[in-house]
Nucleic acid binder design. Structure first.
Lengths: 145, 145
DNA sequence: GAGAATAGTCAGAGACTCTGACCGTATGCA
DNA sequence: TGCATACGGTCAGAGTCTCTGACTATTCTC
């Protein structure tokens, strides 16, 4: 049923949504039942050394106010912490905290499992190709990088 | 900068978001400046004969209440209309109305343009391949179909 | 014809996002 | 050195989107 060609936007959205659903179901089951997709889109961008709020906002393509709102929640829930930026007294660095670090492997495991399912359906060679195509597409569609 | 492999979810999300941004910018410029992404995700699923609310909700993976909320707005803005379903007195069919029909070609043109840009970057053969891979991926990631 | 299922609405709450205004610190330059 | 400007971040308020739960009306099943 319904095999007419869809526009690429929707075609990208459908598997994205499927992945998201799977990850959040697993996180919830593992006890990380607070933690929302919006929070995750910020959390996901935190690098090992920590990031400034404005940096995270820019990467997630939201305003710094929205980023602040989400980081507040993440901080309250113990997923991240804010530390002063030694190089700039105005700024603070958002870093992954203990509970956040504990959630990462859970999420990573589901992502890996889903990617394997997809590879099983597409074939390993084509799964590889999909990743490569999307990575190349990112070159012209990621306003941050 | 930042070429480390990202998870497939994010890799799908980035171009999706880029497409969405482009389409909404063009719609706004063409005078369709009300019309939000959430409304579009419902609107996009309306088929020529019209759809029931619950059908749209299921496709968009939202509750029927949310779908009703969005269709209310679309109706008020003149993008869709509701007509009685001749086969079931409980139901009504949501159909594209005049203003909605006027917006479709504008959106379609942008989608086509963006897809062409992407094809120019990836190469026509690989763009074709990307579409094909995503279509196959839909087979196992679209809970509706 | 009775009971269960379905289509849709109403009410209320919570999450997410935005714009605009503001404070304190840093930077560039005369 | 000092001043204007830019930048990092917060506060306040509003709008949008989503959900859960409860309800009405109609249809389906037996």
């Amino acid at each position: 049923m319904n095999d007419e060609p869809l526009n690429l936007g929707l075609l990208l959205f459908i598997p994205y949504r499927a992945m998201e659903t799977r990850v959040f179901a697993a996180l919830a089951e593992a006890g990380f039942d607070d933690f929302t997709p919006a929070q995750a889109r910020v959390f996901q961008r935190i690098s090992p050394g920590g990031n400034r709020l404005t940096d995270l906002a820019e990467q997630a393509q939201i305003t710094k106010q929205s980023a602040g709102f989400l980081v507040d929640q993440l901080e309250r829930a113990g997923y991240v912490e804010r530390v002063p930026d030694p190089t700039d007294a105005r700024a603070r660095l958002v870093r992954v905290a203990a509970r956040g670090a504990a959630a990462v492997p859970v999420a990573a495991a589901v992502v890996a499992a889903v990617e394997q399912e997809w590879a099983a359906h597409l074939g390993g060679r084509d799964a590889q190709r999909l990743r490569q195509l999307l990575t190349r597409l990112r070159e012209i569609t990621d306003p941050y990088r």
